[in-house]
Design a protein around this nucleic acid. Structure first.
Lengths: 127, 127
DNA sequence: CTCTTACATGTGTGTTTTACACATAGAAGC
DNA sequence: GCTTCTATGTGTAAAACACACATGTAAGAG
């Protein structure tokens, strides 16, 4: 069994806290941005996501589920890529709706950045 | 029953997406920062948190649970405040461990800010 | 004195998100 | 034949979050 996860973004290690702060559901906008640059399949996105997320790996299981969820919502479309060699791959492309969602994510992320800035400024005061 | 929440940070409204991007578990560092400034009780923190989180209200239920969890971990201490008037209030104060965790959160948030910046720069390219 | 409102601290629980383990299969190199 | 890389998935438990509701003190209005 051995299923015991600690709290999400932090753990105690070597007498000191190690914290990793992430934006909630950040893989979604990261995915949309990569797909705006060019259509791609899941495994390809899996390799390119860490450039944006800063994590070693994104969970592949959740990634594939997210892609299918986005397709159900009409934010991306997909089709089996018959042409290219190797195992069958499903090629995803951004829709107009997905592009609009990406725009909204970008605006929301500017807001998040401002809040983080305010936090850090307030943190820097009164040391 | 009527318990159906949509996806976390976004909803479709009026033919357009409304997205709100938050850092995971952000109430924790916000709480620690407020407590570094001065000891306070839960209800007081509840009113001052939106300055940092940017949300209308933080869920009070989760806030009180978080405070007790932080105490169990030795990050804050508390005692009933007998002196002040009104309903009994539990006054929380930051410990040395809590202060160290706040420092790590601040560093992690600088990392998150940088990743957000990179995302937004990449988003701004190739319009 | 009774009623309402503000203060203050909680519990219960359903839904969503994430982490981790595991399954399946084609193709390429040795 | 065997292993590794590519590629797409399923199962599920823990954690995080949203929403509803419970409990009790005190102050002010009438």
């Amino acid at each position: 069994m051995r299923h015991h996860h600690g709290p999400r973004g932090r753990r105690h290690h070597g007498g000191r806290w190690l914290v990793f702060a992430r934006v909630e559901r950040f893989t979604e906008p990261a995915l949309l941005l990569l797909l705006r640059e060019r259509p791609a399949h899941g495994y390809d996105l899996l390799e390119r996501l860490p450039e944006l997320t800063g994590e070693q790996r994104v969970e592949m299981g959740n990634l594939y589920r997210l892609l299918r969820a986005l397709e159900e919502e009409g934010l991306v479309t997909s089709e089996w890529d018959e042409a290219s060699p190797g195992p069958a791959k499903r090629r995803y492309a951004l829709t107009e709706e997905g592009l609009q969602l990406l725009d909204q994510w970008a605006e929301a992320l500017r807001g998040s950045r401002e809040r983080t800035d305010r936090f850090l400024e307030r943190y820097a005061e009164r040391r």
